[in-house]
């Protein structure tokens, strides 16, 4: 039986707080990522091995992408944007593990990520320009643009959320439907497609977050 992707299942309560399977899955993912990162980086050398080279490729790739998109030093943004990409990509790829649902296939996770990107965009903008100049940018090029700019801030965060949720949820849903209708190995092509989709969506989510932050920290509101 296929469960509704818009519903959450509470598996236990931590005091008054209900802990859903999405949160539990996320904790497991966090633990795996943290332990894996700690193990992978505990013995870094000047001459890197394959794993270290892959990690450095990931980090330098994110650095290069941030530098090209923001036209600024990637240092202050690498942790947030890199963490965003790693989390979204790894969460999306959980659909390939039987019995696990990706946290990003639930709208609460995508909404949380979109809200964090929304807040981070304004926080980086205010930190780069100051509160007054940053707020004044919303009224440029004319005061008539102020409502549109304010609305666009919310709509683009909303679109960010919906885009990720729709792509990942639909993929998981299709795999579930095919699996229930055809058989054990029939969803493999769809899973491969989901692998590609998950990576692409993680990339798109991260790049859009970069673009939003870049628009906030730049002198004009081009984003």
């Amino acid at each position: 039986m296929i469960r509704s992707p818009l519903s959450t299942t509470v598996i236990f309560h931590l005091g008054p707080v209900p802990i859903s399977d999405t949160v539990a899955t996320t904790w497991g993912l966090m633990a795996a990522l943290t332990v894996g990162a700690a193990l992978a980086t505990r013995n870094l050398k000047t001459r890197p091995g394959r794993l270290q080279a892959a990690l450095e490729l990931l980090v330098t790739g994110v650095q290069g992408q941030v530098r090209e998109t923001l036209r600024a030093d990637p240092g202050p943004y690498i942790a947030f944007l890199g963490g965003l990409f790693v989390f979204v990509a790894s969460a999306n790829l959980l659909s390939l593990i039987p019995g696990l649902e990706p946290p990003t296939a639930h709208i609460e996770t995508d909404a949380a990520l979109a809200a964090i990107v929304f807040c981070a965009t304004h926080w980086f903008g205010v930190r780069a320009k100051g509160l007054g100049p940053y707020l004044a940018d919303f009224a440029r090029p004319t005061w008539l643009m102020l409502p549109l700019n304010l609305i666009s801030e919310f709509t683009r965060a909303f679109s960010l959320m919906v885009r990720l949720f729709g792509n990942i949820m639909s993929g998981v849903f299709i795999i579930g439907v095919v699996l229930s209708l055809v058989g054990l190995f029939a969803p493999v092509p769809f899973m491969a497609l989901e692998l590609l989709t998950g990576l692409i969506q993680a990339y798109i989510f991260t790049v859009l977050a970069m673009v939003f932050i870049g628009g906030a920290v730049s002198s004009s509101r081009s984003a």
């Binding site: 949160v23 990522l33 270290q52 942790a79 790693v86």
Partner: peptide
Amino acid sequence: DFWTLGLQAANFLILVWLLHRFLYKPVLAA
């Protein structure tokens, strides 16, 4: 589920810190 939403937001922020501590910082240092 706003509990889940809030916990996921907190989880992500914690993960960002953890990855910064155990992944990006050591790799950047290397």
